[in-house]
Amino acid sequence: MTTDTVANGAKGVSVGLPGAPQAPQKQTSDFRLTLIRLKFWLKSPSPYLNILGLAGFLLFWYLTTEVLKLPLFEKLPGPTATLDEWLSHDPMFGISFFTLEYYQHIGISIWRVFQAFALATMLGVPIGLFMGWKKTFKDYTFPLLEVLRPIPMLAWVPLSILMWPGREASIVFLTFLGSFFATVLNTLLGVESIDECYFRAAASLGASEKQIFSKVIVPGALPFIFTGLQISMGYAWFSLVAGEMLAGEFGLGYLIWNSYTLVQYPVIIIAMITLGVIGSLSSLIIRLVGDKLMQWKVREAAQ
């Protein structure tokens, strides 16, 4: 093949080539991409509507609890009472931004979720991938998964207390279970969502089974896996709080329940908001890691 002839040949068709008139394009750097997106976001009405929505909720909370004192809400602490406690150097109930105990509760909860989520991901993703890859393995395991998966986490509490020696292990185990099934199922769905044509293309091009696994199954399932990880992170926090309420001595779930029994209501709100913020942040981290690994998805959305 000589370039010459083809260049001549191509001349005849070069006039309206799709893409030819466009300037050579460079991949935009990650940082610039983020800046550009941030700029567009700030120009759109979204951020201001976001703030308005949050402010509306705070106003509703304030009015119902502290100004109007409506029947359903009169026992709840209002935003100012909560904030006073939260920002106090000498909090009435011992929990605020300036107490070590607050961070101990947060720290232990994050550590438990981290252990459980890491374990669930390290086991769940390979099992899900393998189920999708090998039909026989799926035939063995899928019915079991489908029966175990719908069992609510709370139903596992007695068994996990019986099984594990300490409270710590049983709480982590409960958290792990909550997150594990979602991860396996979404990974499996991810593999099954990969279009047959990619397997055919890879097989045609001479890829071995292992190469198909690493170059088709894993990247093809990644979008589903990361959606699954976000869901499973949610389940992990859910199960954690349930576990801590029942068996904990520390942690945000324990703090909520303990504050209820001790009639320290503002602390309940503090712990709840803390859970909400940490939960969102953990989801965000997963999404960022996913974006990093799936540039092809990010670029698609950027253009």
Binding site: G19, K26, Q27, W296, R299, Q303
Partner: peptide, 12 residues
């Protein structure tokens, strides 16, 4: 005629 598009993903 795709040498300038070597680093693009198919969706692009």
């Amino acid at each position: 005629g795709l040498e300038d598009f070597r680093d693009k993903y198919p969706t692009q």
